[in-house]
Write a protein that binds this DNA or RNA. Structure first.
Lengths: 155, 155
DNA sequence: ACCAAAATCACCCAAAAGTGTGAAGGAAAA
DNA sequence: TTTTCCTTCACACTTTTGGGTGATTTTGGT
């Protein structure tokens, strides 16, 4: 049978108390009690059991838990948490497909690669990108990406 | 005179003990002690002083502190404090002039416009940009800008 | 069902971007 | 001093991008 720490402490206390009472009984039936005054005997008991109480309390009291909060710095890629500006997209009249192209454009893909990814022809991508440039009022894809990122249209 | 909390506790304990001993003395000189057995009397004292000891211990002993460390994630906005990564620049072997070109490239300027800004020829800018693509291991200017920003080589 | 916007694609042409090679001058390092 | 790297530039060539026009199909909303 496995005893918990606290039950063990209580058991030790009980045994100690029983042993002490036995000692007292022995002292009583023998010489000490008649040679010394009752007050001294009681004082000794008081001190002993006070000490025992203190010892017991120290053993039993569960430690106060102090929660210490340590700040852990987490660097978050801001590009992942900037919410896209749907209002701006609507204002500029950029369509879903154009946004797709714009997004892939921003990753550095060529029109040919974008066409492959979207399963459309090169000409379609060209049309989309031309429309994007018109709507964003820019001349080149690099400008389009720069402006789109600045306006939070893409990540 | 101002008493500290601990001294006050000890004083209360002393007074309580004195009062108890007085009570015992009174009980002794009167009827109780003669009507009941000494063992019961001693048991009562034991219990009382154990309780007092426990109370004293709880009052006086400063609580055991168990420190529990909780990590709190602090999100740091990297976009506002992006400092350029000189180590990365050195590692890639990108020269000052190439960095100039790369920076202007990121703003969406054409090679022609970059050449005008830097007072060099179009061919020079082309050479620089080609070298940049080699060093960054990319194929196009859009990829170069994307990677450079990701590596904090440029703003 | 109809209309407008969106998405698709083609063709041509011009401009811009990118590749490869070579070369000359200058500054800093070995 | 020699070497190396940076910077500058040129020329030829290919690829990519962008502009303009026009056309067909799909889709979403009244």
């Amino acid at each position: 049978m496995q005893l918990s720490a606290k039950r063990k402490e209580i058991l030790i206390y009980g045994i100690s108390m029983a042993a002490l009472l036995l000692l007292l009984k022995w002292l009583e039936t023998h010489f000490i009690i008649y040679n010394y005054r009752l007050e001294i005997f009681i004082g000794a008991i008081s001190i002993t059991f006070t000490a025992l109480g203190i010892w017991l309390a120290l053993k039993l009291v569960k430690p106060k838990v102090e929660t210490r909060i340590v700040e852990k710095e987490v660097y978050i890629d801001t590009s992942l948490q900037t919410e896209i500006n749907q209002k701006e997209i609507d204002k500029l009249g950029i369509s879903k497909r154009e946004l797709d192209v714009l997004g892939l454009m921003a990753t550095g893909l060529s029109n040919e690669e974008i066409a492959e990814k979207l399963f459309v022809s090169l000409n379609t991508v060209k049309t989309h990108s031309s429309n994007i440039f018109l709507k964003l009022d820019v001349k080149r894809r690099t400008q389009a990406v720069e402006k789109a990122k600045r306006l939070n249209i893409i990540h």
